[in-house]
Design a protein around this nucleic acid. Sequence first.
DNA 1: CGGTGAAATGTAATCGATTACATGACACCG
DNA 2: CGGTGTCATGTAATCGATTACATTTCACCG
Lengths: 337, 337
Amino acid sequence: MSIQAVAAKAGVSVATVSRAFNFPDKVTRSTRELVERVARELDYVPNASARTLRTQRSRALGVVLPTLLNPTFAECLQGIARAAIAGGYAIIPVTTGYQLDEEERAVHLLLAGNVDGLILVVSNPSTSAALARLRSAGTPYVLAYNRHPEHPCVTVDGEAAVADAVARLVLLGHRRIAMVSGTLAASDRAQQRYRGYRKGMADAGLKAPSLIEVPFVESAVDALAGVLQAPGRPTALVCSNDLLAIRSIRAAHLGGLGVPDDLSVIGFDGIALGEDLTPALTTIAQPNDDIGRRSVELLIQAMAGGTALQADASLLLPYFFRDGESCAAARNTTATR
Amino acid sequence: MSIQAVAAKAGVSVATVSRAFNFPDKVTRSTRELVERVARELDYVPNASARTLRTQRSRALGVVLPTLLNPTFAECLQGIARAAIAGGYAIIPVTTGYQLDEEERAVHLLLAGNVDGLILVVSNPSTSAALARLRSAGTPYVLAYNRHPEHPCVTVDGEAAVADAVARLVLLGHRRIAMVSGTLAASDRAQQRYRGYRKGMADAGLKAPSLIEVPFVESAVDALAGVLQAPGRPTALVCSNDLLAIRSIRAAHLGGLGVPDDLSVIGFDGIALGEDLTPALTTIAQPNDDIGRRSVELLIQAMAGGTALQADASLLLPYFFRDGESCAAARNTTATR
DNA sequence: CGGTGAAATGTAATCGATTACATGACACCG
DNA sequence: CGGTGTCATGTAATCGATTACATTTCACCG
C-alpha cells in the first residue's frame, strides 16, 4: 500500500499523509487520527527505498566483521544492534571471513546500499584498501577492535593487556611462557597482542619469547599438541583469543597434559561461553558489547553533527582480567628453570 | 555520482548508461566501453534505493533469528550468507532474543525494507503473529529449524533424533536418563525434542521420564548442579542443545561428577566448537550450514517462479550422531537400577 | 463586514534508477 | 532510388516518498 492509496481513501493529499506521520503537530488532530486509522486499515508501511531516495539518508548502518563464528564478534554485534535500535537505526552486517578482497566487496556493497555510516573490524587499517575507498567516499565510519592513529577506533589496549597477563603468569612462577596466535599478518590485533607478549617477557627479564603461530580458521589442534610435547615445553600459554585458548586446552589434553596442573592457559576476548567451560577459561575480557555500543554512539553522534569522525574521537575501553580455572601457579618453579 | 553524471560526461543518455550495465549487448561495443570507462572514472555506484523503487525488487533477503550468541544460528547464517551471495542476493539479519514481540517487529522492519523474501526461525509457527502478518503480505518465506505442516520448513527430524539418542544411551546401559531443556513453551524445537525423549524412553520401556527445564538465556549452572546431586540422580543427560550440554557438563563437575565417567551427556545442534572441547561433545549434529543454504535455495527458486512457497516444499535434512567423549557406557548397570 | 495573518492543506518538483515507446541511422533489396 | 526492417539511442513516464511553495480556511480584530 502506497501513500497515494492512503491519501485517496482518507480523502486528503499525499502531503498531508506524509505530515501526519513525520510532523504530527503540523496537521489537525482530527486529520491525523483519520489518516492513522486509514493507514492501519490498509496496512500501510512507508516504502523505505522511496524515503531513502528522497531524503538521501537510509537510517541504516553497515557493519563489516570478520566472522560471526567467533562469539567475540557475535557479542559485539549484539551491542551494536541494541545501540542502533535505540538510536533509530537499522544495521546491515556483512562478514568477510578475514579476507581482504571481501572487506572491499563488503564496503562497496554497503555504500551502494546507501548506509549512513559504517562500523568495521578490518584486518589491518594501515593497508586496507577498503578503508581508503571509504575515506574518499566521505561516509562516516568507526573501526572496532582495530587501533590506528589516523582512524577513529573503539577498542582496548591489547598490548598492555597481554603484557599484564604475562606479568601475572610470572608472578605465578611461570618462566617458560609461550604465545599462541593466529597468523600475525592477518590482523593488527594479533600483532598488538604479540607485541604485548614480548614486552611482558622482556619486562620480566625472560628470554626467547616463543610464538606458536597457527592458521586462523582451521582448528590446528594436532599441530599444537605436537609443540606442547617437545622437551622444554612451555608451562603456560597466552593465547591471542579465546577460541585458540580452547583449542590449546584440548591439545594439552590430547598430549596428556592437564590444565591447569601441567599447563596454564590464558585466553583473550572474554567470550561468555568461556565461563561455562571446564576448566572455566581464564581470560583477558574485553567489553565486547560495549565496544559495539560505543562505536554506534560515536557514529550516530558524528552523523548528527554532520562532521566526519576524526581519529582523535577514538576510545580506549578498559579490559578486565577474568579469573577462571585454566591458570594456576607453576607446579615446580625450580624444575622449570 | 548519479547515472545522470555518467551520462553527461560520456555524452550519451541515461538510458544508454543503464543499458550498458544491465543489457550489455543492447549497446555497441564502443559505447559500452566508453560508459564503463567514464563510470569507473567517476566511481559510479548505482543507487540501490532508486533501483529498488523502480523495479520493485531489492535483491535482498531478510533473516529473522533468535540470537547469534548461540553458534548454531551463527553457523546457519553463514550458510545463508554464502548461498545468498551465490544467488545474487544480499541479506539483512535481525535477531529477536527469543521474544515474540521482537519477532513481529523484525518482520515489520524487513517488510518495510522491501526485502524480496524472508528466512525465519520463529518460536512457534502455530502461534506466531509475525507469520500471520507475513502470510497476508504475500512475501515468500521459509522457516528454518521450525517444523509445521502448514508452512514451508527446512529442518531435521528432531523428534526422531532425540529418540535415537535415548536408544543409544540405553544400549550403553543407561536407565536413568534425564532431559535438559530450555523453557518448553519458548520453542517448538524444544517441544519436538522433548517428545522424542519421551518416545525414546517409552520405546525402551523406561518410566518416569524426567525433564529438567532451565531458563533459556541465563546460565543456570547452579540450578542444574543441584539436580545432579539428588539421590537417584540420572546417569545420562540428553540436552536440548549444545550450550545446555556444555553447561550441564560444568554443573556435573561443580557437583564432583566426572563426564563421562559418572555422567554421560549428549547435546543437540552440532556446533563446531563442540569438537574442540574437552571432553569433546557427543551430540546430534544438524547440518546448520545446509539448513541455511537450502532455505535460501528454496526461497530463490520460488521467487524465480513467482509462486509463493507451499508447505509441501518443506525439506527434512538428515542429522548425524557425532561421537565425542562426553558419553560412555553406564559404569555399573546394576547399581543404577 | 472586510482585512489580516496563522494554520492547515494541496500542488508539483525532486531523488536516481528502469523501461516503454519514439526516433534516427543505416544496410539491403527490388 | 525509395521502401523496409534492424539496431542503437534518446525521450519521458514511473516507482513512492518528502518538501518548497502556493493556496485555502478561518478566527479575530477594528
